[in-house]
Design a protein around this nucleic acid. Structure first.
Length: 899
RNA sequence: GGGCGGAUAGCUCAGCUGGGAGAGCACAGCCCUUACAAGGCUGGGGUCACAGGUUCGAUCCCUGUUCCGCCUACCA
């Protein structure tokens, strides 16, 4: 095969074949086809994104599944797309216009949103090109965007119907507020991290009397908004205080001491300052009191103190204010002490700004009823999570789920389809809360006819539209053929970091609106970390760029590395050396193919192959091929990507290359009757192997496959591709051939060991005598002398039961054979005795172990008969072996070895 | 505070339902044998974290301990 270069160069080849696949529409799904569907929706990457290791792993695994199923004859649809990523994208564009000196508020909402779309058209979706470079076999004709028209329709439909069913409501309560992004966040969008802080003890004097209460707080500045002090009703120390009033320092306000069971007497002083407007726990206390405590908001949406904080503090930044308050408390002698205290602080998951609890009106989804069904779906097996260990995480979260805050005070996103009737304030409108939720923009208030309507400014949480992804991308709410054919999707492949954000919500929404789960299986893959186990992040500077890996080592090697790393239930510590190793593997395959193709000129790859007229080596490799085929289908079915990768690696390198190719060389170069069958077999094995490997290494396999002459050439040109060539199925093992081969291999390795250990140069052809008591083994060896001669570089003088050890021979004892290599003059008797003694010691150790076991009556009585029999056989075998080894040592001594 | 996972060869990790441990890389020795030196052959290396328990038998199951990760949580 003159066309193949000496080594594989991915550049050019990758683009060439990707373009070819696209041009021939191999990835485009046909909902009209009768074949069994297999569908995946991609976890839509953010428009702002560039490909990172997580995407690379995620995409590779999905592509392996998609290609495998496509080759296996399924009707595969892999829907690609992107997420508009509300806050993240808005932040990016805000930064961009800031560099031009523009503020979004000055630009105005419509103009800003326009800018974001413009940005999206220009920079967004860079990641799509990168996914293509990875070889992703998505149906790009069905690419979707969470903010495109069809998806917006789905979002509105879901929102309005949930509202109509009372499952979406608006409420005013404390929410997580990001003062930088200027929006509400849901609970899971807050990341908790521990920091070294301080616990500040403050004295609150009793009003109209002696004495005081000391409270402890991590946020002294919020005291300006305190409306009570709470103690545990059972706490004897404070019992007399309950119901009394204390003087709130620095403000002159008088606030009550109240009782609440949530207060832990053991923490701090046992007395808590209560700031209902700025702390979730305090809000709960306030609402439990009768009458309810006052809410005084002292920190505003921008993180600055409000006027209610007092003239002195108003407009200060919250941290600046903390310093001021501490100083003032110190000055007034009310600051008792401060102690070091490590505690978690909530931060915005987009910008890491410290979250501020803030009381604002927001929209919520009542999730409990949805969650119950979603839990049930996993519990009863309608959805299978792999690995199973994630079930518990899922259940734990779902069972304690709180209502989902879905409104965001940003501009980039699905605007909430709600309007407020202004007239309602004048009691003209009969609509009790003035809220109008509509699928289309209403002309006027349907209740009072007023034309004075104002649309809600908020947009929906990005994850609201993502939650609909499995059916919105298939055309819902229309009844499309795609929806009918491909929903529920077959599998969702994703990282565990978005189980709550995304997976759980898709399940809830899918069941609610499609009356069926969104996917049958969920495969949760690991997080890719750096080689020392650290999370990759820009700030740590330990990010490995997938694009760099692909450029440096080729996409095939990179993909294979990811698959080989993807063991279930463990994070991936990525190391570049592994990629390098798999590049060697690509090269190995390449060269083996070169060898096969150049030695099979004139032959065509057969569609099927008959074991009968083949030599043992060929029967063996075919049997092994069938075994690995079975293994691959099985491991892929179980999402054991690493096992799949290792199996095919092992087969190609160590069975096909190290043994089979080496052993058939004499046949190929000589005039054996097996020459033609072997040539066919080589092509057959190569072609099937490439197909087995294709899902992992799409490019190099296609490149080689296209050079193999045979069946494909009869097909029309646009159907000639490994992509649609069919995934191999097991075709049967030949146990005899495998057994016989193991005898041959054992013999060859015995000679090689002698060579290696005694440092006999490979260029010297050794003469060996082989002793075996088994007639069948003898027959096999005699029938396959060519192999043994070639692989061990020996001339076999004698084989059989009566073979005796010639004088001055090196000896290797194996299960079925004993190999004697006469080495007159060459043999170092001492070295050889040492070697045999080592073997003797090994056997001795095993025998002792087995002996102990077999003398144990309990073992004989209770262990299964099959095991006992196996152990006995093993014992006998080792006894025989030891016997032979010892005999040989004795002979060597007789020959002159020193005792 | 609760929950989950990990601890196996120098390094990175496999080891599915318990019968006595594997790979890749690294290391050592020998080979440029006409597919591949990005290669071939051979070899060394592990009381499977620690302590108990269940069992005829435990790397595997149970309990506890230590050390690492991660998730989750309104102890101010």
């Amino acid at each position: 095969m003159a066309e193949l270069n000496k080594s594989f160069t991915p550049e050019g080849v990758e683009e060439k074949w990707y373009d070819y696949w696209i041009a021939n529409k191999y990835f485009i799904a046909d909902p009209g086809s009768e074949t069994v569907p297999f569908s995946i929706v991609i976890p839509p990457p953010n428009v702002t994104g560039t490909l990172h290791m997580g995407h690379a792993l995620n995409t590779t695994l999905q592509d392996i599944l998609a290609r495998w199923k496509r080759m296996s004859g399924f009707n595969v649809l892999w829907v690609p797309g992107m997420d508009h990523a509300g806050i993240a994208t808005q932040n990016v564009v805000e930064r961009q216009i800031a560099s031009e000196g523009i503020d979004r508020h000055r630009l105005g909402r419509d103009a800003f949103v326009e800018r974001v779309w413009k940005w999206k058209a220009e920079y967004g979706g860079k990641i799509i090109h990168q996914l293509k470079r990875l070889g992703a076999s998505c149906d790009w004709s069905r690419e979707r965007f969470t903010l495109d028209e069809g998806l917006s329709r789905a979002v509105i439909e879901v929102f309005v119907s949930l509202y109509e069913q009372g499952m979406i409501y608006r409420d005013n309560r404390l929410i997580n507020w990001c003062p930088r992004c200027h929006t509400a966040l849901s609970d899971i969008e807050v990341e908790h991290e521990e920091f070294d802080g301080r616990l500040t003890y403050i004295k609150y004097p009793l009003d109209g009397g002696d004495g005081h209460v000391v409270v402890a707080t991590t946020r002294p500045e919020t005291m300006l908004g305190d409306t009570a002090v709470a103690v545990n009703p059972e706490d004897g120390r404070y019992r007399t205080f309950i119901g009394k009033m204390v003087l709130l320092p620095l403000t002159g306000r008088v606030i009550p001491v109240v009782a609440d069971e949530s207060v832990d007497p053991k923490f701090g002083t046992g007395a808590v300052k209560v700031t209902p407007s700025h702390d979730f726990n305090d809000e709960a206390i306030a609402r439990r009191q009768n009458p309810q405590l006052d809410f005084i908001t002292v920190i505003g949406p921008d993180g600055r103190m409000t006027e209610d904080a007092g003239i002195k503090y108003a407009n200060m930044d919250r941290y600046e204010c903390r310093k001021a308050v501490l100083q003032d408390l110190k000055d007034s002698g009310l600051l008792v002490k401060q102690e070091k205290y490590r505690h978690p602080i909530g931060q915005c998951y987009r910008c890491k700004t410290v979250i501020e609890p803030l009381s604002t009106p927001q929209w919520y989804v009542k999730v409990q009823p949805l969650a119950e069904k979603a839990v049930e779906a996993v519990r009863n097996g309608q959805i299978k999570i792999v690995p199973k260990s994630w079930d518990n995480t899922y259940f734990a979260w779902m069972e304690n789920i709180k209502d989902w805050c879905i409104s965001r005070q940003i501009w980039w996103g699905h605007r909430i389809p709600a309007w407020y009737c202004k007239e309602m304030r004048n009691d003209i409108c009969k609509n009790k809360n003035g809220i109008i939720v509509y699928r289309e923009t209403p002309d006027g208030c349907p209740y009072c006819g007023s034309g004075d309507l104002v649309r809600d400014d908020d947009v929906l949480d990005t994850w609201f539209s993502s939650a609909l992804w499995p059916f919105s991308t298939l055309g819902w709410p229309e009844k499309t053929p795609e929806l009918k054919k491909y929903y529920p999707t077959s599998v969702l492949v994703t990282g565990f970091d978005i189980i709550f954000f995304w997976v759980a919500r898709m399940i809830m929404m899918g069941i609610k609106f499609m009356d069926d789960v969104p996917f049958r299986n969920v495969y949760i893959h690991a997080l890719v970390r750096d080689s020392s186990g650290q999370k990759m992040s820009k700030s740590k500077g330990n990010v490995i760029d997938p694009l760099v890996m692909m450029r440096k080592y080729g996409t095939d090697a990179f993909r294979f590395t990811l698959a080989a790393f993807a063991a279930q239930g463990r994070d991936i510590k990525f190391s570049e050396e592994r990629v390098e190793g798999y590049r060697h593997f690509v090269n190995k395959l390449w060269n083996a193919s070169r060898f096969i193709l150049s030695n099979t000129e004139g032959a065509n790859v057969p569609a099927e192959i008959d074991f009968e007229d083949l030599d043992i080596g060929s029967k063996w490799i075919l049997s092994r091929l069938s075994a690995v085929t079975e293994e691959l289908n099985k491991t892929l079915e179980e999402y054991r990507f690493n096992d799949a990768a290792n199996s095919i690696y092992q087969f190609i390198w160590h069975e096909l290359c190290d043994w089979y190719i080496e052993m058939v060389k004499p046949i190929l170069y000589g005039e054996s009757e097996y020459r033609e069958p072997v040539r066919r077999c080589l092509l057959f094995v190569l072609e099937r192997t490439l197909r087995l490997l294709h899902p992992f290494m799409p490019y190099v396999t296609e490149e080689i496959w296209q050079s193999i002459p045979g069946v494909k050439d009869e097909k029309p040109e646009d159907l000639r591709s490994i992509v649609i060539s069919g995934y191999p199925k097991p075709f049967g093992r030949d146990r005899d051939a495998e057994d016989f081969m193991s005898v041959i291999m054992e013999t060859v390795m015995a000679v090689r060991t002698i060579r290696g250990e005694l440092n006999i140069t490979p260029s010297l052809e050794m003469k060996v005598h082989i002793k075996t008591i088994d007639e069948k083994v003898k027959e096999v060896l005699i029938g396959n002398l060519t192999y043994i001669k070639k692989l061990a570089r020996v001339d076999v003088i004698k084989i059989g039961a009566g073979t005796r050890k010639p004088k001055g021979s090196a000896i290797a004892v194996r299960s079925y054979v004993e190999v004697y290599a006469p080495l007159e003059g060459l043999l170092n008797i001492e070295l050889e005795i040492d070697r045999l003694k080592k073997e003797d010691a090994k056997a001795e150790k095993t025998i002792a172990l087995l002996n102990k076991k077999l003398l144990n009556e309990d073992f004989l009585k209770r262990a299964p008969g099959e095991i006992v029999k196996k152990e006995k056989e093993k014992y006998d075998e080792y006894m025989r072996k030891r016997e032979r080894v010892r005999e040989n040592i004795k002979k060597l001594y007789e020959l002159g070895g020193k005792q």
